[in-house]
Amino acid sequence: MSNISLIIEERPRNIGNFMVGRLLPFKDKRMVGPFIFIDHMGPAHMAAGQNLDIPPHPHIGLSTLTYLFEGNVMHKDSLGTEVEIKAGQVNWMTAGKGIAHSERTPGYLRDTSKNLHGLQIWVALPKALEEMDPTFYHADTSDLPYWENDGIAYTLIAGNIMGKASPVPVYSPLYFLQLKNTHRQTVNIGQHLFGEAGLYILQGSIESEGTTFGPKELLVAKNNQLCEFTMADNTIIYFFGGEPFPEERFIFWNFVSSDYGRIEAAKQQWLAQNFAKVPGETGFVPLPGETDHLKHRV
């Protein structure tokens, strides 16, 4: 019997002027551990004058994780943060009780051709921390734990696993782990996984119990302890997951909460433009209607 309980394929979504592949949430699986939202951005080529431009928009009740494989994004938020994220770095923004931010192509690249490729992820906060003060953390590539074992190169982007700890300040037990190889290799990582676990294939393929799975597929395990598979040559995969929360999480647009009343309040707050402003920005993303918010962000 297969140890894979669910196979989720990317679904195209438009997030303004940019197409992404949506992985979570999915109709049959809203969350994997505390992970509630995953978008695969690109790979996209943008000619000179074509740029990523997502004006200020709000978040509550979650942390966002941006991890780029290629390209550059300028992040600005209502805390006054202004930082460029480059490939291999991590932007970790915790919204808590409320934050607004923008994501754009940096000014020095706007009139040149460029590529953009990466993951945008939301991690729900524990109920006791949903209304914490917003924070921001940026990690350089060299800050992230990296090690090699049995032909696999590991990078721990966030969380704790395999005796390693990322400096990214997470708020519940979780892991977001990259595996890369050059030659065909069998991997048994099950003894290290905890909570719920998902496996995303970025490049190459894996074989599990006689079935081959390829890029842009997210696999959810039935039993983490039985997680054994073979990576084909030059494969890149991501394990993510952790302990699920006991309470349900509601999601509307960019808002996540264990209390839907809190989401309703955030809607009104954004409609009234009462979120803190992003310095240097004048535009904003309008609140979507009740029936069309899914095509915007969720």
Rank of each mutant, 00 (worst) to 15 (best):
3 N>M: 08
18 F>K: 04
19 M>D: 11
22 R>H: 08
25 P>M: 07
26 F>V: 00
29 K>A: 08
30 R>V: 14
30 R>G: 13
30 R>N: 13
31 M>A: 09
32 V>H: 02
32 V>D: 02
35 F>H: 03
37 F>Q: 00
40 H>G: 00
41 M>L: 15
42 G>W: 07
43 P>M: 06
44 A>M: 14
45 H>W: 12
46 M>K: 11
46 M>I: 02
47 A>N: 11
49 G>S: 12
49 G>K: 12
50 Q>Y: 07
52 L>G: 01
52 L>V: 13
52 L>C: 03
52 L>T: 01
54 I>T: 01
57 H>G: 09
67 Y>I: 05
70 E>S: 05
70 E>C: 00
73 V>F: 07
73 V>M: 13
73 V>N: 06
74 M>Y: 07
74 M>N: 14
78 S>V: 10
78 S>A: 11
79 L>A: 00
82 E>Y: 02
84 E>K: 11
85 I>Y: 08
86 K>S: 14
86 K>I: 01
90 V>C: 04
93 M>Y: 06
95 A>I: 07
95 A>S: 12
102 S>V: 05
103 E>H: 07
106 P>I: 02
108 Y>H: 15
110 R>Y: 05
113 S>I: 02
118 G>C: 04
119 L>I: 12
119 L>H: 05
121 I>T: 08
127 K>P: 00
128 A>Q: 13
130 E>H: 04
131 E>N: 13
134 P>N: 00
136 F>Y: 15
136 F>A: 10
137 Y>K: 08
139 A>G: 13
139 A>T: 09
140 D>M: 11
141 T>M: 04
144 L>G: 03
151 G>H: 10
153 A>N: 10
155 T>C: 03
155 T>Y: 00
156 L>F: 04
161 I>Q: 04
163 G>F: 06
164 K>E: 13
169 P>L: 04
174 L>S: 04
175 Y>P: 06
175 Y>C: 03
178 Q>N: 12
179 L>I: 11
183 H>W: 00
183 H>D: 09
191 Q>F: 03
193 L>P: 03
194 F>K: 11
194 F>C: 05
195 G>E: 06
195 G>T: 05
198 G>L: 04
199 L>A: 08
199 L>Y: 12
210 G>R: 10
215 P>W: 01
217 E>F: 12
217 E>T: 15
218 L>K: 09
218 L>T: 15
221 A>D: 01
221 A>F: 14
222 K>I: 07
223 N>E: 15
224 N>Q: 06
224 N>C: 02
225 Q>F: 06
226 L>T: 01
228 E>Y: 00
229 F>D: 07
229 F>P: 09
230 T>Q: 11
232 A>M: 06
233 D>N: 15
233 D>T: 06
234 N>L: 03
234 N>R: 11
235 T>H: 05
236 I>T: 15
237 I>S: 04
240 F>T: 06
241 G>T: 11
241 G>K: 13
243 E>P: 06
248 E>F: 09
248 E>I: 08
250 F>I: 00
254 N>Y: 06
261 G>E: 13
262 R>A: 15
264 E>R: 15
268 Q>N: 12
272 A>Y: 10
272 A>I: 10
275 F>E: 01
275 F>Y: 15
276 A>V: 02
277 K>A: 14
279 P>D: 09
280 G>E: 01
289 G>N: 14
290 E>V: 07
290 E>S: 08
293 H>I: 05
295 K>D: 10
296 H>T: 10
296 H>M: 09
298 V>D: 09
